[in-house]
């Protein structure tokens, strides 16, 4: 029922109590507003894009052993459990350090050595990265035999999105698309390996470590293209379970 008598009341804010009918009117509508706001909270929460089933074991420090390689980004070549005898015997795990930084300044002196290190796992699908604690790097063997498992390069044109491997593999959710662009640019600029994320028609993702034509790091040159749909022409090769895409950023094409 409409309470028009409240319109004749006069509210003065600094008085201890407001006019009763006016305050009843306000209370009823404020309660409705709160209910509406909670409805908005539910709708906003459930309408988010699904989150990836990636993981960053933040705070969980483990010990790892393997051979350090630079491709040119540091990777730890670890022995792979022999679940599939026909599969590769090693895995290459990308390395990073705390923050939006690459691990290369810390690992370069130990290139080719067998090392023990501590860090936290970051993983998504079959890709693994370790956020290492640089002070824990310890050499077990100065020169270790390098696995000769590189394939020949094949020309290829791919369409996808450049992401920073650290966030995309699990540190951030989402770790791609426009809302993550600034973070991806910061990470790649800081030395985190850039990756070209390519999805097939079913949405299954494949990752390609993105380097220059001569296998050099091109982080600064890919920054203008991060988090946008692009087409990349280059050559792809594998190193164990790592896919490496060599391409000249000059030839990147925005879609």
């Amino acid at each position: 029922m409409r309470d028009d008598s409240a319109r004749d009341e006069f509210f003065i804010g600094w008085q201890a109590e407001g006019p009763p009918r006016t305050m009843r009117f306000v209370r009823a509508r404020v309660l409705w507003w709160i209910a509406l706001a909670l409805g908005v909270a539910v709708l906003a929460a459930i309408s988010q894009r699904p989150f990836a089933s990636s993981n960053f074991e933040f705070g969980a420090v483990r010990t790892f052993e393997g051979v350090l390689e630079h491709v040119p980004f540091p990777v730890l070549v670890v022995d792979r459990p022999a679940a599939d005898p026909a599969g590769p015997s090693t895995s290459r795990w990308l390395l990073t350090v705390f923050g939006k930084r690459g691990a290369e300044p810390h690992t370069r002196p130990f290139d080719g050595a067998r090392v023990r290190l501590k860090g936290s796992l970051i993983h998504r699908d079959d890709a693994v990265m370790v956020e290492l604690l640089p002070e824990t790097l310890a050499v077990l063997e100065e020169r270790s035999a390098r696995a000769d498992d590189a394939s020949a390069a094949t020309p290829i044109t791919l369409r996808g999105e450049i992401v920073d491997s650290k966030c995309f593999l699990g540190v951030m959710k989402p770790g791609n698309l426009k809302t993550h662009r600034a973070c991806a640019a910061r990470c790649i600029s800081g030395g985190v390996p850039p990756v070209l994320l390519v999805r097939d028609e079913s949405g299954r993702a494949t990752y390609f470590l993105l380097v220059g034509p001569a296998g050099e790091a091109v982080n600064e040159r890919v920054l203008p293209y991060v988090a946008e749909p692009i087409e990349v022409t280059g050559s792809v090769s594998t190193r164990g379970d790592l896919r490496i895409l060599r391409a000249d950023p000059e030839a990147f094409r925005r879609l």
């Binding site: 939006k100 951030m172 910061r186």
Partner: peptide, 9 residues
């Protein structure tokens, strides 16, 4: 902090 912190600038 999340998107711009802990970086090179």
């Amino acid at each position: 902090l999340q998107f711009h912190g802990f970086g090179d600038v």
